[in-house]
Nucleic acid binder design. Structure first.
Lengths: 229, 229
DNA sequence: ATAATAGTGTCTGTGAGACATTATACC
DNA sequence: GGTATAATGTCTCACAGACACTATTAT
């Protein structure tokens, strides 16, 4: 280091808003805090960035260590939270990330034996989470809802092969709205580069079997799937 | 502080991508670095966050100290940049901000006597800026271009009272595209809550005098002003 | 009058939403 | 056949883009 010793010093953490849809319920991954500050309170998974680690790597590592969730389909930076006093132990800036995963079943907890659980977003927002994690969660949820309109992020909530009805279920759960199946089908399959048909059908349903798709390479879906005004 | 002494320690800075439109040219505010690291190279204005200051306040302070620009019409967080090695002096995380200001005339430089100048975005992106500021600038420009579609941010590039032609000039400069004046007029004035007519006209132009407007209270413009496909 | 810019009208194509209709499975 | 879901077709309305046209100023 070549900074003089009177430069202000900070601690930097990452926190992860990890979202999924489980049985039609829009859910977020929470970890119960063990020993130390805010013990026993629920919080977003996260922790201190290591000295030689970039921010995204730290987010991925903390997510797995605290909750056992590996390799989410999407992980991107959300925003940073650095108000003085947001952590009573010192000056901590947290770089929050947004992760999206398909339904992975119950959370097992991570290698450091903290408890982890999927909680419905509605419930989580009503809880009193640790630090400023209510604010971070609100921002993450808002980002996810907005991104559904113009990005293929909905497919990140689904397994690699999925039906149009699966995808519609994601939109309905995240937006908390009912969508017309017929119009949704036409719009989703018509958005260029969004869905790639696999030529096979899904079994197990009650009616006519649905085509299977995988997500295409487009980074924006066009025209966007607008949430009804 | 109650962290044990072996927690990793970081320095936290803010950098500001401050954008404007000057005589039809989409421009960014750069500062020439004085003594110290990367001396003589152009950089985004920014600096270290003070111990008791929140991030947005720090961004506002650094912008004024280094360039003399006060109270931009918009200042919001952009993203954080924290790769190990992005600053050779130590582990520095920079929280970048996006600012938008109307044309303020030539930059005078700030109280600490560094040089500051408005540079066309095109030129700035071709320069080799300090640290990872080329990346930050790219991200800021992309954010601004995207926000024009659905937010009233274009008005932040204008003085408090402006004409529809002024506003169109912002879109054309930022997007680098020509827009049909007739259709733009209909869309801009038709977007609910975007423009508030003042009932007065602007003088000085060559043709029929244009109505003056101020920006409305809407946070999203609807329907959006889409950039032509 | 001419030029220049502001602002409106009109036409056409695309897409959204409502909803009817057909297709294909299980019971 | 009855029911459930997938997928397509049809109709109407709103809006985007192209562009003709009118309005109001300066020279």
């Amino acid at each position: 280091m070549s900074f003089s010793s009177d430069y202000p010093v900070f601690y930097v953490t990452v926190d992860v808003v990890c979202l999924t849809v489980r049985d039609g319920v829009f859910s977020v991954l929470l970890a119960e805090r063990g020993e130390g500050e805010q013990k026993g309170r629920w919080a977003l998974p996260g922790g201190f960035v290591h000295p030689d680690e970039d921010l995204e790597t730290a987010a991925r590592r903390e997510l797995e260590e605290e909750t056992g969730v590996r390799a989410p389909a999407l992980l991107e930076q959300l925003a940073s939270y650095g108000d003085p006093g947001r952590d009573p132990r010192g000056r901590v800036v947290s770089v929050a990330h947004l992760a999206v995963a398909p339904d992975l079943g119950d959370a097992t907890g991570g290698s450091d034996a903290t408890a982890a659980a999927w909680v419905s977003v509605e419930t989580a927002l009503r809880k009193r989470l640790a630090f400023d994690h209510n604010l971070i969660l609100r921002d993450g949820v808002a980002r996810a809802r907005a991104k559904l309109e113009w990005s293929p992020v909905a497919a990140s909530f689904c397994p690699p092969e999925f039906t149009v009805a699966d995808l519609r279920g994601v939109y309905e759960a995240v937006w908390g709205a009912r969508l017309d199946p017929a119009n949704f089908h036409r719009k989703a399959t018509g958005a260029r580069g969004f869905l790639v048909p696999l030529g096979r059908t899904a079994g197990g349903g009650r009616g006519r079997p649905a085509q299977l798709y995988r997500v295409g390479s487009a980074t924006r879906i066009h025209p966007p799937l607008t949430i009804s005004d």
